[in-house]
Structures are given as C-alpha cells and as structure tokens.
Design a binder for these strands. Sequence first.
DNA 1: CGATAAGTGAAATGTGCGTTCCAGTTGATT
DNA 2: AATCAACTGGAACGCACATTTCACTTATCG
Lengths: 191, 191
Amino acid sequence: MSTPTGPRRRADAVRNRQLALEAATALLSEPGASLTVEAIAKRVGLGAATVVRAFGGKDALLDAAVSGLLEPLVRRARDLLAETTPTRALHVFLRELLAFQTAHHGVNDQLGGLDLPATTALRADLVRAVEEMIDGARREGTVRTDLDPGVTTTLIGQTALAVARAQPPSQELADAYLTVLLDGLRPPSAP
Amino acid sequence: MSTPTGPRRRADAVRNRQLALEAATALLSEPGASLTVEAIAKRVGLGAATVVRAFGGKDALLDAAVSGLLEPLVRRARDLLAETTPTRALHVFLRELLAFQTAHHGVNDQLGGLDLPATTALRADLVRAVEEMIDGARREGTVRTDLDPGVTTTLIGQTALAVARAQPPSQELADAYLTVLLDGLRPPSAP
DNA sequence: CGATAAGTGAAATGTGCGTTCCAGTTGATT
DNA sequence: AATCAACTGGAACGCACATTTCACTTATCG
C-alpha cells in the first residue's frame, strides 16, 4: 500500500500533535485531572483549537493516548503467553496489570461516554490474551474449573478496574487484591 | 425538638415530591438511564422546575433516592451483626450486598461529581458494619489475618462496585465474585 | 527573498444541563 | 364562593465544554 500523499504537513504541526498527545497521556495518569480540551492545551501552551484539530476531535485524541498506554501492556501479555506456562503468565501478568492500573489511575475513570475504537480493540485483545492464560491455567489445574471461563475473565477485568478506582490507589491495596484473587481462583483443594 | 413551622405545604406538592423521589429511585436501577432532571421529570409528567424545587436541587434529590435504597441495607447489616456470628453475618451480608448491586446497577455509576451527604454517611455506616464483621471473623479464624483489616474492607467494597459495573450485571457473575472472594479471604490453610 | 498554503488561537457558536423567573393555576381556609 | 399564598411549568439564564470561524502568522519551497 502506498502512503497517500495528502496536503503537505508542516513540521511544527507534527510537533504540536506530539505535544498534545503527551499532555493527554500525562493527564490520564493524574487522579483528579479534568481532561478537558482546554486543560490539555494549557498544559503545553497551545490553543484549544490546535489540540482538537491535530486529531480531528477530542475523542480521537484520547483514543490515541489511551491506546499508547495500552499497547505495551497487550504486547507484554502476548509475550508472556509465548515465553512461559499459562499459570506463570497469568500470575506475572496480573501483577503487572494491577500495577498499571495503580499507576494510570485515570485511564478508565472519565472515559464513559466517549467513542474510542482503537482502545476498544486493544481491550478486546487484552481480554483474549487473559482468556488464553486462564484456559491454559485451568488445563494445568491451577485455576478452578467450577466457574464459567468468560465469567472468570470478566471477574479479573473488573478487579483491575476496581484497583484503579480505589482512593487513593496504592500498591498495598493492589497486592491485597492480587493475593485474594489468586487464592480465590485456585481450585478449592489445591496446594 | 419541635418541628419548625415553615410555610404551609400543600398536599399536591407533597405528592409530587414523592413522585419525583420514586422516579429518581427507579432510574437509579436502570443501566443506561440518563439521570438528568428532565428525564426524571418526564417520567412522572412533571416539569423540571417542580422536581428540582421539591428537594432544593438535583443533588439533594439523588441523595434522598440513594439514601432510601441504602438505608434498609445498612439496617440489615446491623441486624445480622446482632443476630448471628460475625462469620455467618459476613457471608450472608456479602451475598445480599452483591444482589443489591446487581439489582441497582446505576447507584454508583453516574454519581461521581455530586454532593450526597446522607449517602456518604450511610456508606460510612456500611463500612463500619463490614469492618466489624471482618474483625469478628478474623477472631473466629475464618478470615485471613495477613492483610490489613482496612484494606480488606476496601477490597470488599470495591468488589461490590465492580459487580455493579459489569455489563450486563448478572446474578451468575455476582455468584462467581462471591465464591472467589470468600475463598480468597479464607486463611491460606483453612478448610 | 517572495509567494503561498499550512497552521494558529482568541473569540464566536452550538449543545446539554441545572437552575431561576414569572405569569398563570390551584389547593386551602374562611 | 371568595381570597390568597403555595404551586406549577415553559421560557429564559448561566455555566461548562467541544467545536468552528477567521484574521493573522509562519514554515516551506522555488
């Protein structure tokens, strides 16, 4: 496929687009951030119009920002699945997922009414990867099989969201979640 | 204390106030409900102004509605503490708490930026009751003691919230949560 | 350079929502 | 029935945001 030659893009516009993306990404990790276009613009000394235009709308900007955060996480999940046993992948990944949610508190908070296609797709990838881990772990006998696999996945996802919503989010709380979740997911009579 | 004699209150105003409260309460249990003053008003055929005036503001209306839902739950928690052992109270109450969240999906969803004093107070009561259950259950040896009690309470509360946010909320999911949570909360080497 | 299209941001516009106004209506009291 | 304060709801207002406009600026290229 050939890169379609659109109208010329000026270097400063490209740089401003990058600045806006970084500002949005930074705000996503701050608990009380307002996440308005003006707030994002002010953070890098741009006008609101410039920020919006660079992405064609606020939704697209946030979609890009969230996707940028999610992408490495999805890659990590896939890598773990390839490198190690499902059980170990599940344990390691859950720890990292909860740490991610603790660090990027705002990622799932104010995003309710927005249309974020790339983010939605990445989330689906994440769910698929976790399902694979659970499926494998069940086969290995380290995860209980008396629950529906899909329900188990949802449970894990919602648990991750819950960590992000705690006030304040703390690593201690995330650790407690992980401990309880993993113990609760074990087969009722396993070591 | 004597009831302060304010201006006369007409019967239809009292009735409309009640209608508005019921409409708000009903909307709180509907997943996709918009929860705007207009939506509440339209539901009972009143004007938006009337609905707002009856409570002195949207926040006060929702505070009353949510409190009305929460009150029986708090009473139930206290009753269980008085009637039975902490362990049994914890198990029974958790099941009912999750059922409540499943039924009243919207209660915690769109309420972020609002000021709800009565609701906040009731929530604190609820937290206190659950803390008491956990404390007692720990003493009875049915809940693990390697986690901070406060963290354990937060964990339970966030789990309840997570149930409400699932799409769609189902009793099956709530049951799965309960199973995993209770198994995970047991001391690592208990039956 | 000089020409010109791309880019910029302050201000204008549009939208959704809670709240307030006010002219008209209605329940209560005598 | 007559009076009057309480009540009502459509319209106006205020506010917070996202988005668009447009006169001005600036990077880019011959």
